[in-house]
Every structure is written in C-alpha cells, then in structure tokens.
C-alpha cells in the first residue's frame, strides 16, 4: 500500500517524445485510470512505472523509494497485461503460483495463497488446465489471479479488458472494481475506452500525444472538459463542436446562433454541446437547417445536420420522424454550452 508519485517524467526515443513532462501524485488506495487514444503515451507511462521502460528524465517514487533505477522485480508491483502474458506451459495453478516461486516465498504458504487468489477470481474449478484450454475471460481471470496472489504496493493493468467480448467486458469490469475495493491497493489502469474509465476510476487522467490533457474525477471530466480534445474524446456520441464567432454573448456560426453566453470574451471560438442537452423544437431554434441524416436508435432518434465542416447531432424522442433535407430546428440551452478558444483549443 503506497502512494505513487511521478515527478516530471519524460520519455524520449531519439527526437520522438513519447511522454512529455508527466507530473502526478497518486494517493494510496486510489484507482487511477489513464485514458487516451492509442499512441498517446498512456501505456508507456505505465511501463515506466513497472520498470519495463527506462525513464529519460524525471523521477518515479513508490512510497518513500525512488524506483527509477530498480529492476521490475524489485519494485514490488504486479501487472495485468493486455494479452495476459500467461505461461503456456504451466497450469492455471502454476501460473498463479509463479510469482511466489520466483520471489522465494516459503513453500508451505503457497497453496493457501494460490487458493485464496483463485477463489477471488472464481477459478477453483480450472486449476489443472493450461491456458490454451481456457476461454478468453478465464485467461483474463488467471492474469488477475496471478496479480493478486501476493500483496504488491501497486497494481498495474494494461487494457485488461480489450481482448474480451462486449458482454464479458461489462461483468469483468465490475469484478475488477469489486476486487480493488476489497484489496484496497493503489491501482493504475490503462484504457482507451472512456466507459471503462468512467465506471472504474476515482480519478481519470486524459492523455493525448504524450501530454496530460486533464486530471479529474469522471464527473469533472465529463461536465467540464478542459479542452477540445477532452470534450471530443469523452462521451458517446462525442460532444458536438461548431466553430464560429462570439460577440457580446452571442455565438454565430454557419446555421447556428446561440444567445445568452458569457459576454466577457469575444473572438473566434468553438462551441460545444452534448447531443442529449439539446432538443428538437418547432420554432425559434438555435439551429435551423436541412438535416443530413436521421438514425433510429430504438430508445431515441439521432438527428444530424452538417454545419460548416462539422456534423452536429441532437437526440430527439423516439417518435420523431423527418426526411433527409427537411429543415429541422433545435434548441440549445445556453447553460449547456461549452466554449473553447479555436486557436488553442483551451476551455474559456
């Protein structure tokens, strides 16, 4: 159990910057999720914590130890890999026992520890099988079992659910959340799936191109995205973003006009709002344009316009019907709008 600190950590390969000045303090027992698209540096950051990648600059502290120069085996961590990294020649039991064996834990404790871990991940019935004889979900649980068989200071999980099918992902997600709260171990979890991030995290770190974009609780990240990137990355469907001009509290873009916004800023801005915050109206809408498409989702309909270069979607109730090219209007409440500087992408 320990707090984990990354102090201005950098990773460079030649002139390529993998992780740029990552600075974060992770509290004891916290469940931290690193979220971002592929190539954003999240996995590299985790691998540096694990010691699988050298740190180019900066310091990593685990509890009160600076671990930069420690081998992975000396860092007292455990990790779940994306493709699990199970030893194909060993049985499930042997796989889970492996860390105990190489760490020279006294033999007589092995059985009890392995059985406890196996029980927690519900694998008691499969202990004699080899990984090749298991389903994807079972393999994933073996990897989890191997991680929790000892009490490491930190759990690292690298996209552990990405190889599972959608249904299994939901149940395993719940299981991971449950395990973490029982074991009370600091956890760093890497994913590109924003729903996993939202459901699991105490705090989410959104990364892009090697930089931290925003750190916050899932609610903060969803409600007040710090910049255009976070706004477009979080939420499904992604936040609508339209470019235009803000003048005296009035936003004017192609086919869209919103009034009652903050009056202290003006200039080229990007207006953002979520599809579910707007509604279809008959008259006086902020948007009034021929629609580009209409999709029936079952519980609702999604109406889409093409405004300037951007596609803008609004959720309509499920009875709503219109033909493509019909002019439809939508109302966007001013308090549901987010404003970003078009130049920098930062939130205003």
């Amino acid at each position: 159990m320990a707090r984990l600190q990354l102090k201005n950590v950098n990773k460079r390969w030649g002139s390529f910057v993998g992780v740029d000045n990552f600075d974060l303090d992770i509290a004891d027992q916290e469940f931290l999720v690193l979220l971002g698209p592929s190539g954003c540096g999240k996995t590299t950051t985790m691998r540096m914590i694990a010691g699988l990648e050298e740190v180019s600059e900066g310091e990593i502290w685990l509890g009160d130890r600076m671990v930069n120069n420690l081998e992975p085996k000396d860092r007292d961590i455990s990790m779940v890999f994306q493709s699990y990294g199970l030893y194909p020649n060993l049985t499930v039991y042997e796989n889970i026992r492996f860390p105990l064996r190489v760490r020279l834990v006294p033999k007589e404790q092995h059985d009890e520890m392995v059985m406890r871990a196996a029980r927690m991940v519900e694998l008691e019935d499969f202990l004699d099988r080899r990984p090749a004889e298991l389903s994807g979900g079972q393999r994933q649980r073996v990897a989890l079992g191997r991680a929790i068989v000892r009490k490491p200071t930190v759990f690292l999980m690298d996209e552990p659910l990405s190889n599972l099918d959608a249904k299994l992902r939901v149940s395993t997600r719940a299981q991971i959340k449950n395990l973490q709260s029982k074991l009370k171990t600091t956890t760093v979890y890497v994913t590109h799936d924003q729903i996993e991030a939202m459901t699991l995290a105490d705090r989410v770190v959104v990364m892009n191109k090697g930089r931290i974009q925003q750190v916050g609780t899932p609610t903060e990240i969803y409600d007040t995205p710090a910049n255009v990137f976070v706004a477009s990355f979080i939420g499904s469907p992604a936040m609508n973003l339209v470019q235009g001009r803000l003048e005296k509290g009035v936003f004017q873009g192609q086919g869209i006009r919103v009034i009652g916004l903050r009056a202290d800023k003006s200039g080229n801005v990007t207006l953002g709002f979520r599809a579910e915050d707007a509604e279809i109206v008959k008259t006086d809408g902020n948007i009034s344009a021929p629609i580009y498409s209409i999709e029936l989702l079952g519980e609702a309909s999604m109406v889409t316009w093409r405004l300037g270069g951007a596609l803008v979607s609004v959720r309509a109730n499920k009875g709503f019907r219109a033909e493509i090219e019909d002019v439809v209007q939508a109302d966007i409440p001013a308090d549901a709008c987010h404003l970003f500087d078009t130049e920098t992408g930062e939130r205003l």
């Binding site: 694990a50 699988l52 992975p72 990790m79 890999f81 990294g85 030893y87 492996f98 690292l156």
Partner: peptide, 12 residues
Amino acid sequence: DLDEAALVDGCS
C-alpha cells in the same frame, strides 16, 4: 507480455 509478466512477477 510473456517475459515482461515474468519480470514483474519477480524474475531477473
């Protein structure tokens, strides 16, 4: 993943 898992599990 295979040998890295071993490294994290405590191997040189």
